[in-house]
Design a protein around this nucleic acid. Structure first.
Length: 361
DNA sequence: ATCCCTTTGAAGCTA
DNA sequence: TAGCTTCAAAGGGAT
């Protein structure tokens, strides 16, 4: 697989290969039929986020700005991504997640266009857009006169830049008139963690930066559970954790989760993820390629934002200790690391299995 | 309150 | 280098 840490070569995951799955075609047919037929039967109530209660005025304003940038999307989206279907780039009820995309600094021309001209803003799904973790969320608009705002994209300074270094935000194209990306449904407005440790060294709040108090704290952060984190935040030293960029499948899950939930009565993530895993396999190579490309861009963006960051930073070796669950349950040790969804499914005893036709299990 | 489950992919670790 | 492990998201369920 492409490596990003190889010194910033041109590849950088561009070769995100698509994994070919045997019987993909057949699987796809089954999957689609499953989706439309079986899940439809299970549908009891649609989760229609577009019908959410009246949004705050601040959100509405943000979305107005987003709309403007969305119009530019078509001009900036490239290749397959440009033609991505609705869920990710069009409203479709996911109107609150703009999406900033940088030009590829590793393109052969080595150029990175100016931010203002390379800022597709899309409005993806329910949760967060693929790139949202890398997008500032705070309620405070990034005004065009912000000192953080772009100036020179080429001013990379390495991993340990002092706070208020003005270069990093340059990698986050912020629309003039400024709009941090906001997720009303997730309640990221003036999130306490934002004000606390969830702040990039530049001072820009960043959802990828979370208090280093374990994943559960991250969860709370992610789910916008603001109030009861207060006491904890006071006690714990603020050691921000920069989270990993999402891979293609994670991006896909984020986009499609709400849809799947809406299509069935399932709510358990484990079951939903099983379905999403199957749908992922059912995607065409072209469709998957879109997500690989998004993931690649996200990795690039992440790398630019946090040049010194490594997945190692969040890596906890369990050698000799027991922190997380054993993986043998759902990881086929004989697969040599390359897991097969079909090999990891428990047979017929999962929640999803109750809703899936036997042939797809 | 915390961990598990469940998925795939990226990246780290170990032998 | 191969093979394994961890983490990324999500949120209901289990402990």
């Amino acid at each position: 697989m492409p490596q990003l840490r190889g010194g910033g070569e041109e590849d950088l995951g561009a070769s995100d290969e698509l994994i070919s799955f045997k019987d993909e075609g057949e699987e796809k047919v089954q999957e689609n039929s499953f989706t439309e037929r079986d899940l439809a039967d299970l549908k009891s109530s649609l989760v229609n986020e577009s019908e959410a209660p009246a949004m705050p005025e601040a959100v509405r304003r943000v979305q107005d700005v987003q709309r403007v940038y969305q119009e530019k999307l078509a001009d900036h989206m490239e290749d397959g991504i440009k033609h991505h279907e609705e869920p990710m780039y069009k409203g479709s009820g996911y109107s609150s997640y703009p999406f900033l995309m940088l030009s590829d600094p590793y393109l052969s021309n080595g150029s990175m266009s100016t931010l203002s001209s390379k800022v597709p803003v899309v409005q993806p799904s329910h949760g967060v857009h693929p790139l949202t973790p890398l997008i500032p969320y705070n309620n405070e608009p990034f005004s065009s006169h912000s000192p953080h705002l772009p100036a020179d994209l080429n001013q990379k300074q390495g991993a340990h830049r002092p706070p208020q270094t003005p270069d990093i935000p340059a990698f986050y194209p912020i629309p003039p008139g400024g709009v941090g990306q906001i997720s009303p449904s997730m309640g990221w407005f003036t999130h306490p963690l934002m004000l606390g440790s969830g702040v990039h060294t530049t001072g820009i709040p960043h959802p990828a930066i979370v208090p280093h108090s374990g994943n559960k704290d991250m969860e709370c952060y992610d789910r916008g559970m603001k109030p009861h984190l207060e006491p904890k935040r006071e006690k714990e030293p603020k050691k921000p954790t920069i989270k990993k960029p999402l891979n293609a499948f994670m991006l896909y899950m984020k986009e499609m989760r709400a849809k799947v939930i809406a299509e069935c009565t399932l709510k358990e993530s484990a079951a939903i993820n099983q379905i999403l895993g199957r749908r992922w396999h059912a995607l065409s190579r072209e469709e998957q390629a879109k997500y690989y490309e998004l993931a690649r861009k996200e990795r690039q963006l992440h790398m630019q934002l946090y040049p010194g960051w490594s997945a190692r930073d969040n890596y906890v070796s369990n050698k000799g200790k027991k922190k997380r669950r054993s993986r043998e349950k759902h990881q086929d040790s004989s697969s040599g690391g390359k897991r097969s969804a079909f090999g990891t499914y428990k047979e017929k005893d999962t929640v999803a299995a109750q809703f899936l036709p036997m042939e797809v299990l």
